[in-house]
Design a protein around this nucleic acid. Structure first.
Ligand SMILES: [Mn+2]
Ligand SMILES: [Mn+2]
Ligand SMILES: [Mn+2]
Ligand SMILES: [Mn+2]
Lengths: 218, 218
DNA sequence: ATTTATTTTTAGACAAGTCTAAAAATAATA
DNA sequence: TATTATTTTTAGACTTGTCTAAAAATAAAT
C-alpha cells in the first residue's frame, strides 16, 4: 500500500515527464512546494520500491510500475472531479483541491462503480482525458491557441496551469469546454487573435491565446 | 485542522459515550485496536485542544466542542455511506471501510452539496440517523426486538454491532430497513418470536431477536 | 582551466503517531 | 487491612515525512 505522499510524488513526476525529458530533483520540489532535501529522501524510497529510476545527481524517470500507479491516481482524480462538477454542481475551478484528497481513497470497487455511475466519461471537467482501468490514456494532440494558423480550427480542451482566472472569464463569455474555435485573423501589431466561436466573432489578447489549450484535427 | 487520527478518536469516544457513562482509556484502545499507551498520548492532546475532559486515571468525556466535531465526522460518514449504497450500488455491508476513509475529506461545501444531491436523507443505509449541519441528531427510541411485548410494533432500523451476517439473512428474506414489524406471539419454551412483516408471518429465533434493532412508537 | 554559482545530497533535527517494557495508581481479593 | 491483580501512565524507541544547514557534485562563467 502506498502512502498519500508517495502517490503525490509519482503523480508529480508523471506530469513533469509530459513537459520535460529528464526530471530534476529541484523541479519536483518546485512542483510540490517542498524542499529539495525532502524530495531526495522520497526519490530514494520510490527507487527502492522500483517505482522510479533514480541516479544520484542525474535525475529520475518513472518505471512501468510507477507510471501505472501515477495513472491510477490521475484516473481517480479526474473521475472525482467529474463527479463534483456533473453531480454535485461545483464549478470546474473549484474541484481541484477536493479531488487532490479524494484521489487517495483506497478501493478498487469504489472507483469502478463511480466510473459507471458517471457514464464512463472520457474527459474530466478541464478537458483532460481520463485513463482507463488498465492505465491507457488518450494522447491529446493539444496545442495552444497562439500556435494555430489562420483558418485553423480546434476544440477547447482546457487552460494552462496557474490560469484559473481564465476559466471564469470563459464562463462569463458562455464559452465551454468542447466548443469549437476557428482563427479568423491575427493582428500583427499586438498579436491579438480574432476568432469565431459558436458563430460569434471574438477578440482574444495574446495572453489569452498563450494559455488556452485546444485539440486540433491534424 | 484536525488530523485523521484525532477525528477517529473523537468519534470513538462519542460512540462509547452512547453505551457507557465514563470512558476508560482501555475501552478506547479496544475500540480502535490500539495500545492503551498510545491512547493516553492522544487523550492528552485532545484535552489540550479542549475537545475532551480528561483526568489522569479517572476517564474522559467529550466537551461540547469535541462532541460537535465527532458529530460532523459521523454526519460525513453516514452521508457517504448513503451515497455508496443509493448511488453506486454497494450493499450496506460493504460501505463501512470506504466511508471510514471518506469521512476525513476536508470540505464544508462538498458535504453540503452531497447532502442535497442525496435528497437530504435522514437515515443512513444501516438505519442510523444522520446529524444535521449544526450537529443535531435524532435520538432514536431504539429497542431490540427481544424487548418488545406481544402486539407491539416497530420499524426495523438496523442490527447490533458484529452481526453483519444477520444483514445477509434479512436480505435473503426480502426484509429491508424501514419495514414494519409486529410481535404476534412469543414461545415461552425457547424464546422464539412469531412476527408479522409485510403481511407475512415469520419465525425468529431468540438470537435474531437479540440483535435486531427497531424504532418503536412510544 | 580556475573560479564561481547552482544543484543535489548528506547530516542532523523535529513533529506526529504508534509501539514495548516498566513504573505508578487504582481496584479487587483474601 | 494487606496483598494481589488490573488499569493507566511514563519512559524510551521507531517510522514517516518534513525541515535547515552544511558538504559535495555538477554546471556556468571568467
Ligand atoms: Mn493528492
Ligand atoms: Mn482536472
Ligand atoms: Mn475514519
Ligand atoms: Mn452506518
Amino acid at each position: 500500500m502506498n502512502s498519500q505522499s508517495e502517490e503525490d510524488y509519482l503523480k508529480a513526476i508523471y506530469h513533469l515527464e509530459m513537459d520535460y525529458d529528464s526530471i530534476s530533483t529541484n523541479s519536483v520540489a518546485d512542483y510540490l512546494n517542498m524542499k529539495p532535501s525532502s524530495v531526495t529522501d522520497m526519490l530514494k524510497k520510490l527507487a527502492d520500491k522500483k517505482y522510479i529510476n533514480y541516479q544520484k545527481y542525474k535525475g529520475s524517470s518513472l518505471t512501468k510500475k510507477g507510471k501505472l500507479i501515477a495513472l491510477s491516481i490521475i484516473r481517480k482524480h479526474r473521475l472525482w472531479e467529474t463527479f463534483l462538477v456533473d453531480k454535485l454542481g461545483f464549478g470546474w475551478d473549484q474541484v481541484h483541491l477536493i479531488a487532490e484528497q479524494l484521489e487517495h481513497i483506497k478501493s478498487e470497487e469504489l472507483i469502478e462503480n463511480l466510473d459507471d455511475f458517471l457514464g464512463n466519461p472520457k474527459y474530466d471537467p478541464h478537458g483532460d482525458p481520463i485513463p482507463n482501468k488498465e492505465g491507457k490514456i488518450e494522447k491529446m494532440n493539444q496545442k495552444l491557441l497562439v500556435e494555430l494558423k489562420i483558418q485553423q480550427e480546434g476544440i477547447i480542451t482546457g487552460v494552462k496551469k496557474g490560469t484559473a482566472s481564465l476559466l471564469s472569464y470563459l464562463d462569463k463569455e458562455k464559452i465551454k469546454l468542447g466548443d469549437s474555435i476557428k482563427v479568423i485573423e491575427v493582428l500583427e501589431f499586438d498579436g491579438t487573435f480574432i476568432v469565431e466561436i459558436n458563430n460569434r466573432k471574438l477578440t482574444f489578447s495574446e495572453k489569452i491565446c498563450q494559455n488556452l489549450l485546444l485539440e486540433t484535427y491534424d
